[in-house]
């Protein structure tokens, strides 16, 4: 699971949960793979993300070093920044661990890089 995906996941479909965002991450195995740098792609994705959530997620798995806490207005011209964002968004992956709902504490295992978010009928809103 990459951190872009984490940015888009909420457990608000759980019974009794109102926001369910962001899920917290506990990683036991983080993989870093090299991915071709595509500045155009990174530039268009950044405004569509919740940067605070991304930063905290990166921090929680030990990869926030050098990553700015806020996005500057002219970020698209800052190649160094785009490269850092690229690394955090696309190259870092949680292979094993779990996600936790901030309200109910329900845990969702991540195995082989795939979050398992299957619910029992009783858990659904």
């Amino acid at each position: 699971m990459k951190l872009i995906t984490h940015n888009m996941l909420t457990s608000k479909c759980l019974k009794g949960v109102t926001t369910g965002y962001p899920l917290s991450i506990k990683a036991t195995n983080v993989k870093v793979t090299e991915v071709d740098f595509n500045p155009e792609f990174i530039t268009r994705i950044i405004p569509k993300l919740d940067w605070d959530v991304l930063w905290s997620a990166a921090d929680s798995i030990g990869h926030s070093e050098g990553l700015p806490k806020t996005v500057e207005p002219k970020f698209e011209d800052d190649e160094e920044f785009l490269k850092k964002a690229h690394r955090v968004l696309l190259e870092i992956e949680v292979e094993e661990g779990h996600l936790t709902c901030p309200e109910s504490g329900r845990q969702f295992p991540i195995s082989k890089g795939i979050p398992n978010m299957l619910l029992t009928e009783a858990e659904v809103q």
Binding site: M1, I4, T10, C13, L90, P115, M117, L118
Partner: peptide
């Protein structure tokens, strides 16, 4: 798992999530 491998073999970045439909997305 198979979706992940198929994407990988074809050099596509894909993020598979095991869930019912699309219930966990913002």
């Amino acid at each position: 798992e198979m979706s992940a491998t198929t994407a990988n073999y074809n050099n596509v970045l894909l993020e598979p999530v095991n869930m019912d439909l699309i219930s966990f997305f913002v």
